[in-house]
Amino acid sequence: MEALAMHISNGIIDGPVAAVFAAFALAAMTICVLRGRRDLDDRLAPMAGLVAAFIFAVQMLNFPIFTAGVSGHLLGGALAAMLVGPWVGALCVAVVLIVQALVFGDGGVAMLGLNITNMAVLGTAAAYLLIALLLRVLPRTPAGLGVTAFVSALVSVVVAAMGFVVQYRLGGTTDLGGNLTGLAGTMAGVHLLIGIGEGLITATTVVTVAKVRPDLVYALRGLRRPAHAPAPAVEAVGGVR
């Protein structure tokens, strides 16, 4: 059976560039701990643990995309950002990547900074920027929430993929003749398709959680302030932002 490797393996990016990104990832994660701490209360902490465990589980579920011989899997940045916010969300994805690298031999340990930068930092950041924007312009309905989750997830996957292309430009170990267009095009195309899967999984999960426990969806908290007063039950609390 084909060995399952989902993340950047050793030898793909050279050591110095990997080290620089390790330092960057460490700095980013430190900021996430400092900022995320403010969000992490007795209720969010176990929820965030669940989100990390859920992302680990769903990352194992490689799904076929409509290109022969290629599969995709969840990255999870958008899902985490929607459910537990950007700071804690990025940490959730990072914990998954650390467990995968140290225990499951997936993604080189020396490459961890690169993988965390792409999926935990870039993916989550891109997703959250879109979430913050879309939740303001789209109707506050399950459909609006679903579209927000779908679009932010799709874009986050492509952004993470492009992060890798930049890293490969800086420290790729195979000389592509200075021409990255081929790799960039392939990565973008494949991850656009994977992004559709990511979007469907993220939207389904977030809408389901919102239906069962809307108070556990971080992205919905900001909408509780009395603005246009659409949802009285939720608006009553107010003042979160």
Partner: peptide
């Protein structure tokens, strides 16, 4: 039930 094909990164 997961697909055993290489993922997007690997295949690229």
């Amino acid at each position: 039930l997961a697909s055993s094909h290489p993922d997007g990164l690997d295949s690229s």
